[in-house]
Design a protein around this nucleic acid. Structure first.
Length: 466
DNA sequence: TCCCCTAGCACTTTTGAACCGA
DNA sequence: ATCGGTTCAAAAGTGCTAGGGG
């Protein structure tokens, strides 16, 4: 465990924080844990869908995290952005997701700034941090600062912690990025999977009117013949019976380990506190790269996240719902085998090689992209990996103004930040504190994406736009 | 024809102002 | 005059569904 003093040095001033080597991103022991992991997991197992609308739609479940390991008296900024999981567009076909083509060009990349930012570490740590008001939209001309996504695409939320006294200093600050694989989702304009609809209705208080036991008379066309035990739904949706009438139960059964996982989830409720300490994704297994998932629980309920890009192992249950028709398509059964054979998540882990935070020795490791299918979608061919690493290359290479990366503050949309969301570039020159290693092809691993330019809009921050 | 998107609907929770009493 | 609790209406957030457009 790193001391606070150690950590402080890691969050040094911009000039001194410029990492020069592999240790540069050993940034102390900031921990981020996802709240409500079981709910997220229950969605993820089915294939989370998030509605996006023109005026903007909240996420459900919404992102809520717990933080620790921050310096109490230092100020931090928390941000969230969404990055595409892969380079494909999907369609829902016969109870499963299928690739239907290449992803559309990425809309303007926006980052949601937590309204409390900047706030001292003590503030962030004293209670859970909610991103309730984060909204998703498919309106590329959105003026409200909502995060713009394409429908029928798969995205992964990323959480960024930046130690910065104010918004201006963010540009020079070292940041840490955390992702939770179970928070990945497919953006849709209307729910595709009826199970997701059911889960949402069961858990979202605003949708109470659609619950079976409600007093409403509204009919749900896709309502699943219901178990009336709604009060036990927290457990119900984890049990097989909740889905047995579902037409997609066939696919559900194709996920080996699903049963065990659900049972485990139920059991784990009582020992969560204990278990959460057991499943650090950054344990020895990860240290050694690939590891078999078969015998390990699909993931911790709460995770300890240390350093760098914190990618949480995902249960592979989502995979059977994505049938890859592109190229070397793993069939549902092959998905199954791959998920059991230890290839169920690593692709996801490496999918987002957050070049800004992944230590060099990690980044330079041979990627496991090619081996493991994404938990959120079919694993793209090696030659089709979104080139996230090129993102920073691009921004650092200095194409100011090309990227549109807005910070959204619900308190004043972009206005409060307008001064630095579109500043004079002369005033805020492109940062140079990022390690040059991150702009080297080392983290590219020879990936080729058909449209790097499109996919290169996922910098942690588009500094060039600030 | 199919697929996706949109707008309007009914329903819910949330929010904040108004009111009342101690 | 202040504070705390209650009430109520408006605002906001949901999924459903019919219809439109590509």
């Amino acid at each position: 465990m790193q001391s606070i003093r150690d950590m402080k040095s890691n969050f040094s001033t911009p000039s001194s924080s410029i990492p020069g080597g592999p240790d540069a991103y050993r940034q102390g022991n900031i921990r981020m844990t996802l709240e409500n992991p079981e709910l997220w997991k229950s969605f993820h197992e089915i294939g989370t869908e998030m509605i996006i609308t023109k005026p903007g739609r909240r996420m459900f479940p919404h992102c809520k995290i717990n933080l620790s390991g921050l310096i109490p008296c230092s100020k931090y900024i928390l941000l969230v952005d969404m990055i595409p999981v892969d380079g494909f567009r999907y369609k829902w076909n016969k109870e499963k997701w299928e690739v239907t083509g290449k992803a559309e060009p990425q809309p303007p990349c926006r980052t949601y700034l937590h309204p409390d930012s900047p706030a001292p570490g003590s503030h962030w740590m004293k209670q859970s941090v909610s991103f309730l008001k984060l909204k998703l939209t498919n309106n590329t001309l959105d003026q409200h600062g909502h995060i713009i996504l394409h429908s029928m695409h798969c995205y992964q939320p990323r959480f960024h912690i930046v130690q910065a006294e104010d918004m201006y200093s963010v540009r020079w600050s070292v940041f840490q990025t955390f992702t939770f694989s179970e928070t990945s989702f497919t953006s849709v304009t209307a729910y595709q999977n009826t199970k997701i609809t059911k889960l949402k209705i069961d858990h979202n208080p605003f949708a109470k009117g659609f619950r079976d036991e409600g007093t409403n008379t509204k009919k749900r066309a896709n309502r699943i013949p219901a178990s009336t035990e709604k009060k036990a739904k927290e457990i119900d949706y984890l049990s097989k019976d909740s889905y047995e009438d579902s037409p997609s139960s066939l696919h559900m059964s194709s996920y080996e380990g699903y049963e065990g996982e659900r049972a485990e989830l139920t059991e784990r409720k009582e020992e969560e506190v204990v278990e959460e300490e057991h499943y650090s994704p950054w344990g020895p297994e990860r240290e050694h790269g690939l590891h078999d998932q078969t015998d390990t629980p699909p993931g911790p309920d709460v995770r300890d996240m240390y350093n760098a890009e914190q990618l949480v192992p995902a249960p592979a249950s989502y995979q059977p719902y994505r049938f890859h028709k592109y190229g070397r398509s793993p069939s549902p059964s092959s998905n199954l085998s791959s998920s059991n054979g230890g290839s169920g998540r690593a692709s996801f882990e490496s999918r987002v090689p957050d070049v800004a935070t992944v230590p060099e020795h990690e980044a330079s490791k041979p990627s496991v992209h090619e081996i493991r299918p994404s938990p959120c979608g079919p694993q793209p061919l090696a030659g089709h990996h979104p080139d996230y690493t090129g993102v920073l290359n691009m921004t650092q290479a200095g194409k100011p103004g090309v990227l549109s990366h807005h910070i959204y503050s619900p308190y004043g949309t972009e206005q409060t930040l307008g001064q630095w969301s579109s500043p004079s570039h002369a005033q805020y020159p492109p940062p140079h504190h990022l390690p040059t290693d991150y702009s080297t092809p080392a983290v590219h691993h020879g990936y080729h994406h058909g449209n790097v330019a499109e996919w290169s809009q996922y910098p942690l921050f588009s500094y060039s736009c600030w």
